[in-house]
Amino acid sequence: MIEKKSFDIGYGNVEKINIGKKKDLVFIGGPCAIENRDHALKMAELIYKICNKIGIKFIYKSCYDKDCRSSNKSFRGVGLDKGLEILSDVRKSFNIPVVSDFSDPSWAASTAEVCDLIQIPAYLCRQTSILEAAAKTNKPILLKKGQFMSPWNMKNSVNKLENFGNSKVILTERGTFFGYNMLVNDMKSLPIMAETGYPTCYDATHSVQLPTSAGNISGGEREFIPFLVRSSIAIGIDALFMEVHDDPKNALSDPNTVLNIKYLDPILRQAKALFETKLKLDNEFGDFKVE
């Protein structure tokens, strides 16, 4: 049998968060892009307080370079140096782990110097040079499933990471292309990706994206976020991922999919309640399988 893997996220003084043992629900979230230092710290504080109140482990996510924007006129980011400086401030201010993605292999090492978790963007999830660079940081990796990838094909990307010496991987579902400018959510991908033994994560905000549906920017149907959160947790995940903003309309990246922070508290409280119910069911029914 393929053994279940679990590992800790967090180095230095930040709170170490275990993933894989399914004791606690882990929330990975923040604004899609780092907009500026004040905003990053403000968002971190708001989310941190909500998670703390509910009792959910929190990893702050925000990116310094959005290389995958539909238009080159869109905000790309504050850049590597400034972005990592801000993420480092967030880390130190709240003693929480942080995650950011990178889209150029040469950025991996510096990203890993600051970040506790390294994200591989969905569009780049099978790029060997990116996977190699991420693996060699020895940091845990949040691997997004490409919208064009089948869940079983993600096993190839996992294999690459393992062959480059990294076996701390979280596999993340974020919607699958259905024709043009449309994603569908095949929840079967979560148990399929879990066959690898690695923890799984569900990205509820990118899953409602309508990629580049508005011509030069992506649309989204965020009214479905709560439904998808509930179903993913009922299926069984280790972490929930959502991009959160205090002013989605004016968000500099993904304005049509980010969740307004005013909804974060009820969504996370439901998520936690469902997660705990799921644990009880697992204890009662064990590894229940239908053949």
Binding site: M1, I2, S150, W152, N153, K155, I192, E195
Partner: peptide, 13 residues
């Protein structure tokens, strides 16, 4: 399941 998925099952299964 699709053959592509079957091929990427672990042999141990």
């Amino acid at each position: 399941k699709p053959l592509a998925s079957y091929f990427l099952d672990y042999t141990t299964k």
